[in-house]
Write a protein that binds this DNA or RNA. Sequence first.
DNA 1: ATACAAAGTTAAGTATACTTAAATATTTTG
DNA 2: CAAAATATTTAAGTATACTTAACTTTGTAT
Lengths: 224, 224
Amino acid sequence: MITISKEDYLKEIYNLSCESRAKVSTSTLAEKLSVSNAAISEMAKKLHNSGLVTYEKYKGVKLTGKGKRQALKIIRRHRLWESFLMDALGLSWSEVHAEAEKLEHQTSDFLIDRIDEYLNHPKCDPHGHPIPQRDGKIPAVPQSLNLTAAEKGNCYTIVKVVDENKELMDYLTSISIGLNTEIKLIERLSFDNSILVVIGNSNYRLSEQVASKVFVTLNRNSNE
Amino acid sequence: MITISKEDYLKEIYNLSCESRAKVSTSTLAEKLSVSNAAISEMAKKLHNSGLVTYEKYKGVKLTGKGKRQALKIIRRHRLWESFLMDALGLSWSEVHAEAEKLEHQTSDFLIDRIDEYLNHPKCDPHGHPIPQRDGKIPAVPQSLNLTAAEKGNCYTIVKVVDENKELMDYLTSISIGLNTEIKLIERLSFDNSILVVIGNSNYRLSEQVASKVFVTLNRNSNE
DNA sequence: ATACAAAGTTAAGTATACTTAAATATTTTG
DNA sequence: CAAAATATTTAAGTATACTTAACTTTGTAT
């Protein structure tokens, strides 16, 4: 039987394997899930026995096809709930993550499909992440660039934020950053890699840490 | 800490004490929650130690003020979710119970208040049960009569169904019974207490078991 | 090549929430 | 009012999902 805990493990293994592309180390997982290494070793065995991951002692874990499908289902539920809570109930993008984190484990296939229909089968969630479809396929999203790699003088459109920390989201909102916001790079300080940007009619200085969470696409005629 | 299990116990104790008005016996609770009597004895002690119920060995349990407030919060979440799933997502009244049963345990005060606002602070859920308010108060609902006590020749309006069994709900829907449906009693067979009723332009015979789940109010000028 | 630090696992223990079976109260009835 | 029937509790055991502490493996640096 798949439990809430197991769903959380699978989701996290999926997220980590997207970044690293290979096997996920048990200590990285432990860190992300805020549990001990011992808890990971134990759960790795169980997930292996259920055919959801491959696991060899001292070698980390990797999702099987079955495990990946399951992980994508959970991510689908999470992202659809986030979208729905904003759309239907007017929650802000800083509020939806925590709620979706709980609701995602208690949502039938039937209900999630109804939510998907209500939203008209959206491709992306409120943070710009693609929403896995019913069949597990992940919609293609435009190639994007990290704000830390943006070039002076260019205009960009914000298409993704890769952290769901509430404080970060609230901060971005406070400086008028949202999905599809236009942003122009004025300068970069090589001292700390902070950048000065224009959003609307105001200038803001963003730290490298903040910029690293934001992804953009280059606008046409931005060099005019 | 209050867990999903404890929430289910409190909710069930509340429901049973509404019917019986007094202490709830452990075996009745065990029956309703589909667990062993032993599980109830154990949990009764825990709930007593948390100040949520009073419990004396062999004497059953009773909600304290604190326990009742907690129970009403859970029932509020359940009924608001049911209303919301019908209203916002178009689920049928036979579908909402099972979904709400899961979502009710994963809903923050913040989210439930947003749902309440969306629905414009409804007084009743889709089955005609009053929805406890934010402050724990229960809206007054019109005095109603069980269909088994309805009188021949009278016209009634359906205001409540006190069972959320999916099969029953689907059956009622199939014979056009919903909340606010008008219904006229044609005759009652004393042999089995079944009744013959008119709904819309059709006649239906309802068993005593079905009628006992349905509550109505008498319509004015129904004797014309 | 080995010694050592880092990474990972095992062992033992905890809390929750169940189970069945045995024991003990309570209630009913003859 | 005592015996039988019923209701309830206790005891012992299970599964999940954690913990800390001790131990083992792996990889690296001299």
